[in-house]
Design a protein around this nucleic acid. Structure first.
Lengths: 200, 200
DNA sequence: TGTTTGTCGAGACTGTTAGTCTTGTCAAGT
DNA sequence: ACTTGACAAGACTAACAGTCTCGACAAACA
């Protein structure tokens, strides 16, 4: 190490042209629009760059892979993820959580975007990992909701909380991706009731 | 139409070299082996043809797409799909059906092959459609099992059978594809019980 | 004002893969 | 022998992810 090496904790003063925030946003917007308009066809980086009026290299300067861009584009929107409800009534909280999940995924143009993202994740291990950390927080929120209910005695001591969580998200993704049957508030209501009564 | 057109119901006598059944089987074997050995990496047609010692065109002479080959390779094995049990006890029949499904998907080298196939189907609409007709027969078998139980009064008249079916397959695919939690006989047992008691 | 540094848009380039096309060979029937 | 069509080999096209290069430009600093 000599005097010209960068020092830990110190940062060389910035020089050169600054990053263009407008380009960043244009890329995200283009990705989201293409994702939403996609009929299941994969969204390409070329298309995103062209739509955003940006060079491909600019995309790769900000994100490490196509999947990262797509996830980021959708994450903006999902950051408004509702906090888990906690009214003190497990069945009502669970019902609200499930209904909110169903609704959030299907509201506006989110559905085709999320579907396309999931399909891409099936063949892109990098994206799959990113997506898993993203969905993990919702799984945790649901699990904590159930834990609170169990502590209040609304669920059996030995109830398999992970199984209940997987039953919710299993049904959700199965119907969401295949699209052969609806995900309505009625279904959410029914699900909340049966999942609790079967494990109380 | 004139006299040289092929007549419906008549077939011009076959001429030329006959199809090589050995090549057909070699392709299927190669596809199944590569599918089973795959660590999630997509299986390529070139690899199948090379492994089978066959020209690529020979593959495409017999199957319309890569997906069709892969599905066919796996379908051979799954044809041994167990018939739906019918003992007269809904809970026992349902438990057996679910446990058989879990077990069949995980026995031997089937699991990685089926996982790879499902991942490919996520981005290949042609394969997705083929796979859907394939899985539809199992869904129907399960639905009929439930219908018989309902006729015996073991399920409420207004029980949502499609929802129960989707809950079974939703959980199955969710855990099977993500692999974060097991699909054991215990789970099958628990599932059979709660799905019935919640809808009885 | 001019120099340095690093981003910008544009697009050429590489590597991979599905699916098609070509070629010369070989087997089954006439 | 001759015709027909399957065969193995592999060249070819079209997409696409990701890298590399280039000349232009913008921000700091001298």
């Amino acid at each position: 190490m000599n005097a010209t090496d960068p020092q830990p904790g110190t940062t060389r003063p910035h020089t050169g042209r600054r990053r263009n925030e407008a380009a960043h946003q244009a890329i995200l917007d283009a990705a989201l629009r293409l994702l939403a308009e996609s009929d299941g066809t994969p969204v390409t980086i070329d298309a995103i760059a062209r739509t955003a009026g940006v060079g491909k290299q600019t995309v790769y300067r900000w994100w490490p892979s196509k999947g990262a861009v797509l996830l980021d584009a959708l994450a903006d929107r999902a950051d408004q993820a509702a906090p888990a409800p906690s009214t003190g009534d497990l069945r009502a909280d669970l019902r609200t959580f499930i209904a909110t999940t169903f609704d959030g995924a299907q509201r506006g143009t989110t559905a085709p975007a999320l579907r396309t993202l999931a399909r891409e994740a099936a063949r892109d291990p990098h994206l799959a990992e990113l997506m898993q950390t993203f969905t993990a927080s919702r799984r945790t929120a649901l699990r904590e909701l159930l834990t609170r209910g169990r502590e209040r005695g609304e669920l059996a001591e030995d109830a398999d909380l992970d199984l209940i969580v997987d039953q919710v998200y299993g049904l959700f993704w199965y119907r969401f991706l295949l699209g052969h049957a609806p995900l309505t508030a009625d279904i959410a209501d029914h699900l909340a009731t049966t999942l609790i009564t079967g494990n109380a």
